[in-house]
């Protein structure tokens, strides 16, 4: 079976800028793939090329085994999408907005509209004009449009954009159930890295148009930096005691001993025992893992927050 998405050397060159540069990625069927990048990294341009909205200047795209552009329109019957901030026809109601998309997707039964309204929690607003909806509800409507026809593949650009915390959890659970129970492939870009780590099977990181890294969640867990933080009454003495035991401790700017030695990370109890024996017992010892935000910024070379 063909992968859900496959790009090879995908490039988009504008006169003044290369928005996407030689991106090769592969998303297997049933996978949840998160596409991470800063603003302007090339995420949306890539997504638009996957959907045939922008023509690539080099490379190839295949979606569900079909070349894009070049595939017949039948391909899009199996794909649902949400690109950038969703918009709706403002003079139409929520129900009519969905009805428009249903009619343009022949074969989708009329009942699908009522179903998706219920599923996305839009029943209260179903007969309200879309122009009067809040950003969060427009986002829900955008997701409803993407899910209306029960697609095999979902391509979502910032699906949690504009949603409140409860809405984020709700959409995450919906996407998780679609992926795990219905086998829907999800390709999503996101800025909410915490969400990504909870939902994605694999992550691709794009920066300045180039795909920097592709890795699965387990690999990413391994790559994230960890350190052991130790606080004692006498930091300088504690550092000396650890050095004499073969560790490489540093005292960081917050006045805490920081250890990144593999032995210390694997056996923090040995570090504690050593300091107790040296009569400088720790009053705090904590294993800290680099969060996804820091990992991401380190990878794109903005660890100290430059350019953000």
């Amino acid at each position: 079976m063909h992968p859900a998405i496959e790009t090879f050397g995908l490039t988009k060159q504008y006169p003044a800028v290369k928005a996407v540069d030689d991106v090769s990625l592969r998303v297997e069927r049933g996978e949840v793939y998160a596409f991470l990048g800063l603003n302007g990294a090339g995420k949306t341009t890539t997504i638009r090329m996957l959907l045939g909205m922008i023509r690539n200047t080099a490379g190839t795209v295949r979606v569900l085994g079909h070349p894009v552009p070049g595939a017949g329109n039948e391909l899009w019957a199996s794909v649902g999408y949400l690109v950038e901030t969703p918009h709706a026809w403002p003079e139409l109601t929520v129900r009519e907005n969905l009805e428009v998309l249903r009619r343009l997707r022949p074969g989708v039964p009329p009942l699908a509209v009522a179903d998706i309204i219920e599923r996305l929690g839009l029943h209260t607003y179903a007969d309200r004009r879309a122009g009067t909806l809040s950003l969060g509800n427009v986002q829900r409507l955008g997701l409803a449009k993407a899910l209306l026809h029960a697609p095999e593949l979902l391509i979502l650009d910032e699906p949690a954009n504009g949603l409140d915390p409860a809405g984020i959890v709700e959409i995450r659970e919906l996407l998780r159930s679609l992926a795990h129970e219905k086998g829907v492939t999800i390709f999503m870009s996101s800025h909410i890295l915490g969400e990504v780590s909870r939902l994605a099977d694999r992550i691709g990181i794009i920066h300045e148009g180039r795909l920097l890294e592709e890795l699965d969640i387990e690999e990413m867990e391994k790559n994230r930096r960890r350190r052991l933080l130790v606080e004692t009454r006498d930091l300088v003495a504690g550092q000396a005691q650890l050095v004499s035991a073969g560790f490489s401790p540093l005292i960081d700017a917050t006045g805490v001993i920081s250890l990144t030695d593999t032995a210390a990370l694997a056996h923090p109890e040995d570090v504690a025992a050593l300091l107790v024996r040296a009569e400088n017992p720790p009053f705090r010892i904590q294993l800290e893992q680099e969060d996804l935000e820091h990992y991401f910024l380190r990878l794109v070379g903005m660890e100290n927050g430059e350019g953000i």
Binding site: L51, G52, M53, N73, H87, L104, R105
Partner: peptide, 14 residues
Amino acid sequence: SDRTIKDLLALPTP
């Protein structure tokens, strides 16, 4: 102007 064009571009309807 309403930015609804993107909803019309990747559909089974040409």
